[in-house]
Structure formats: C-alpha cells, structure tokens
C-alpha cells in the first residue's frame, strides 16, 4: 500500500510530467489557451496514459524482454502510442460531439504527445511490474490533467491583464509556468 502511495505522490506531484520533466510541454502550452479544451485534453491524456502504460508494459514483459529485443523498444512503443491515440481521437470524433468541438484543432497534440510516449519509456526503465506501471501511468495522467486545467485558468486571467508589450504572447505564459514550476519544487520533500 505504501509503495502505491509513493508511486502516486511521485508521479503526480514530485515528478510532475509537465512542470519538472517537460513531457507533454508542447501540448501543455498549445492546449491551455482554452479552458474547455484543456479539460477534454486532460481527460483524454489521463485515459491514454493508463491504457498505454498497460499495453506497453505487456509488450515489454511478454515480448521484448523474453526475446531480448530491447533495441526495438522505441519502435514498438511509438506504434502502440500513436495507434491508441488515434483510436481515442476516432472515439471522440464519432461518439462525443461536445468534446470533439472543443478539441477540434488540438488533435495533433494528442497524436504526437510526448507525455504518453515518455511515461511508457520511463516505466519500462523503472522496473515496475504490470500493476505498478498502470497505476503510475494513471497518477502521472492525473497530475498532467490537474496542472493543465489550473494553467488554462491562469492563462484565461492573463489574457485580461495589461501585460507589458515585450512580454505579451509567449514570454508571460512561460513566466507563469516558471512560477508554477517553482511552486511544484516544494513537493520534492515528499518523496
């Protein structure tokens, strides 16, 4: 039980995907411009991370390790990630019109998401068993979704502020993320 708690705190807070490892940074900055899209994206990535962690762990344990094919890991994991992301996208497009509307322009961020592939690769190197992989994928996804939503709210606020000319656009957004990242450094003592 305490191992699971440590995995949860570690993956969701201490090693937060976006703010300490910059996994999924592209999607984080790209999608957080709109609160609605960020909620859908957060949920989609959370789901995807859990499933990809499971599938990737199965591939690793049943195929790559027994057959000594470690050098094919990147190739196999990329395929798993992109195919599953494509399935999630298709599902959102066909079955959830509201989510599709919000995420219409953000699908590239879902298909080419560094967070999903990154977690699969990190899990494979960490030596977790199947259950721990799935749980750590879920925890990391939860951390990503929460931070994405909070940051989208901050950006909605920034848009109404009178920002100095030089800092408008990307710099002020990056500064806000830097402050958030400093705040998350405080969690480092938990592990």
């Amino acid at each position: 039980m305490s191992t699971l708690a440590m995995i949860f705190i570690g993956a969701a807070l201490v090693h937060n995907l976006v703010l300490t490892q910059f996994l999924g940074a592209d999607s984080f900055f790209g999608v957080s411009g709109q609160v609605k899209a960020s909620v859908v994206m957060g949920a989609a990535v959370m789901f995807l991370l859990t499933v990809v962690s499971a599938v990737a762990s199965l591939f690793q344990d049943l195929l790559l390790t027994p057959l000594n094919l470690g050098f094919l890991r990147t190739f196999v994991f990329v395929l798993v990630t992109v195919i599953l992301a494509w399935v999630v996208r298709k599902f959102l497009q066909e079955c959830v019109p509201e989510a599709n509307q919000a995420l219409r322009l953000c699908y590239p961020y879902l298909l080419g998401n560094t967070a999903v592939l990154g977690v699969a690769l990190t899990n494979a190197q960490s030596g977790y068993d199947f259950g721990q992989c799935v749980f750590s994928g879920f925890s990391a996804g939860l951390g990503y979704a929460v931070v994405l939503f909070l940051f989208a709210c901050i950006r909605a606020q920034i848009r109404e502020d009178d920002v100095p000319e030089t800092l408008r656009g990307a710099p002020v957004v990056l500064l806000a993320a830097a402050l958030m990242s400093i705040a998350f450094m405080g969690f480092a003592n938990l592990s």
Binding site: L23, D26, R73, T74, F77, V78, T81, P108, G112, N113, T114, L117, G118, L121
Partner: peptide, 8 residues
C-alpha cells in the same frame, strides 16, 4: 532522445 519521434 527516443522522444524525438513525437517532436512537433
């Protein structure tokens, strides 16, 4: 390094 594959 492997994450280069999904670099925008």
């Amino acid at each position: 390094l492997p994450l280069m594959v999904v670099n925008g």
